[in-house]
């Protein structure tokens, strides 16, 4: 069945040429053409467009057109027609999967369109699946994909971004990163639209799907209990460690301060990931040395993380040992 593609470019003569030349491919795709970014945005909203070919000179609402569409959660792959010298990719988040330098021949463009439709366009739709099983499958299989997740039945919607099985980021209205991921992963039955590419490269989450699913389930249990007026005891790993550690260490063993500290979240994420890579026991804590202020640090990956500042004259390994024993007993 012929797919619909959208070609948007300010060069009218190019559009006329493509209208003539791309007609021969109508068995594979039909092209909607416009020179107007606003019309393109409207077309994407109202039509089932499988791919967008966009001139790099087009902007909408102060952003390049691909960047604007990405911000609107339009995850349709984009082939960008770039000005000479602008073929290199930028840091701008978008769904650009190919960059073609101008001038571009209709034949080359048609080939790229067909490749993208075959590779990066909508991979599949799944309805009423168990979210947790599927996302763990994506992680285990090391898939690179973008998954648009619709909660079955109520229209709630979010997006998850995977590269080689790692969840890099998540989007939900008003939420990003871990917060959005926890929201989405709490849904039980979902409808999924899977795209075979991921437009993002930066890992904002740095946590395994397993740990996020666990946290999402715990949050859901607490929310359900709260609705019924029942107060649940916090799960073991979320017990408030701060008072316990403050009581045990304040002014002792060379520990100067004990406080919550979220500034090492990405390091803790790395630690979780390394442990998973090596298939060792769960990550318990880390100790850091060589900080600019001269102290050492022992960081416990609780929620939120707790950091113990250890004087450089004290033995941080001893402190780490003692914290580990406390955690076993807690």
């Amino acid at each position: 069945m012929s797919k619909k593609i959208l070609v948007v470019d300010a060069d009218r003569s190019l559009l006329l040429q493509l209208r003539n030349d791309l007609g021969q491919y109508r068995q594979k795709f039909t092209a909607l053409l416009t020179e107007n970014a606003r019309a393109a945005v409207e077309a994407v909203r109202t039509q089932d467009v499988a791919l967008i070919v966009a001139g790099s000179q087009l902007e909408f609402d102060g952003l390049s057109l691909p960047a604007y569409l990405f911000r609107q959660e339009v995850l349709t792959p984009v082939v960008l027609l770039a000005e000479p010298g602008q073929e290199a990719s930028t840091d701008e988040a978008s769904c650009v999967v190919r960059r073609l330098p101008r001038p571009v021949s209709s034949t080359v463009l048609a080939e790229e369109i067909q490749q993208v439709l075959a590779n990066e366009a909508l991979e599949g739709l799944l309805h009423g699946v168990s979210a947790s099983s599927f996302f763990q499958f994506v992680e285990v299989e090391g898939k690179t994909c973008t998954i648009s997740v619709n909660r079955s039945g109520d229209g709630d919607r979010g997006t998850l971004f995977f590269v080689k099985g790692r969840l890099l980021d998540a989007h939900y209205p008003e939420l990003d990163g871990v917060a959005a991921a926890l929201k989405i992963l709490a849904w039980e039955k979902v409808d999924l639209a899977i795209l075979n590419f991921c437009p993002l490269r930066h890992n904002r989450i740095n946590r395994s799907i397993g740990s996020l699913l666990l946290d999402a389930a715990v949050a859901q249990d607490h929310a359900a209990a709260a609705e019924q007026g029942v107060e649940l005891a916090p799960p073991l790993k979320h017990k408030p460690l701060l008072p316990l550690l403050q009581q045990s260490f304040a002014g002792r063993e060379g520990v100067e301060t004990v406080a919550e500290d979220t500034s090492w979240d990405d390091l803790l994420g790395l630690a979780q990931s390394l442990g998973k890579d090596l298939e060792v026991a769960p990550f318990e804590l880390c100790s850091l040395s060589g900080l600019k202020d001269g102290t050492d640090l022992v960081v416990v990956p609780s929620t939120p993380p707790v950091a113990l500042h250890v004087s450089r004259f004290a033995n941080r390994d001893l402190v780490a040992d003692k914290v580990l024993r406390l955690l076993e007993e807690a």
Partner: peptide, 15 residues
């Protein structure tokens, strides 16, 4: 983040 420290020990049970 790693530029903020000289060394890190990550603890995983016996490892």
């Amino acid at each position: 983040t790693l530029a903020r420290v000289r060394e890190v020990d990550f603890f995983y049970g016996d490892d």
